[in-house]
């Protein structure tokens, strides 16, 4: 499958996401430049984490006006798979591809730490490789991850099973303490009604190799690869789910390590 990672000015998890997809998951991956109008024929678009345009206004508020976002919207509207991680999630909210908004974390501090999230709905293109109730250990790193939506929207999201991940403790229990950033309904990941656009605050690319302390993030990438392969009709069943071992060559990018 071919993945495209969008590079906005200020994206800083673009290389990490590229590394996870190409070197760890063994998928063809390309960068998509924010000023371009071309998605280069990718099967899936990933909006990576970072501080697009410095995030001096609201997080993601400027990135949504990028030329590439017009294409991403068209792609999403036609059923293309779009994953937004952290700042990518914030951009999806600003772009109206997902409902709701982000507030500052409840302790008003940037938070970088491992958290636990529970898979609430595994019947999605982003979570099918896991099971419902499964607890994943994945890091977060954000200032504005406190998800907000008005009560009627929240009940609609719940009714439609659009909440894919929720912050929980290591045993899978929800609590105020485990909900580190204060998100409404402990929401950590949210999917659109059509099921092809997911935003999540935790960083699966930071939890895709044993040496980094967790491989749980691979469940999200594997699910997406499965979905795309089935969609293309080349589904080799679960053979591809076992990703290639964490690998060797340095990514072919300028001065990255």
């Amino acid at each position: 499958m071919k993945f495209g990672v969008v590079v906005f000015p200020g994206s800083n998890c673009d290389y990490d996401t590229f590394h996870a997809l190409q070197n760890v998951m063994g998928q063809e991956t390309v960068f998509l430049w924010h000023k371009d109008h071309d998605l280069r024929g990718v099967d899936c678009v990933v909006l990576p984490g970072g501080f697009s345009y410095g995030d001096y206004l609201r997080s993601g508020a400027i990135a949504r006006f990028s030329p590439i976002m017009r294409e991403v919207k068209k792609f999403a509207d036609s059923g293309g798979l779009v994953l937004g991680i952290c700042n990518g999630f914030q951009i999806l909210l600003e772009a109206g591809l997902l409902p709701g908004a982000m507030l500052r974390n409840k302790n008003l501090k940037f938070l970088c730490q491992h958290v636990h999230i529970r898979i609430e709905n595994n019947r999605t293109a982003f979570s099918s490789a896991g099971h419902r109730g499964q607890v994943l250990r994945i890091p977060i790193a954000h200032f504005d991850g406190n998800y907000y939506a008005p009560p009627d929207l929240l009940s609609e999201l719940e009714k439609n099973k659009q909440v894919v991940f929720r912050y929980c403790d290591e045993k899978g229990k929800l609590s105020e303490e485990a909900n580190v950033n204060g998100s409404a309904h402990s929401i950590a990941g949210l999917i659109n009604r059509q099921g092809n656009v997911l935003g999540m605050m935790p960083h699966p690319e930071r939890a895709s190799e044993k040496i980094l302390g967790s491989e749980d993030g691979k469940i999200i990438f594997s699910s997406m690869i499965d979905y795309l392969e089935k969609k293309r009709g080349t589904g080799k069943k679960k053979a591809t789910r076992a990703a290639r071992p964490a690998v060797t060559p340095l990514p072919p990018l300028i001065g990255t390590f």
Partner: peptide, 16 residues
Amino acid sequence: VFRQYDHMVQVNTMVL
């Protein structure tokens, strides 16, 4: 202190 710092970006940090 350190949880206010992004200490994992670039996915190389193996000892936090």
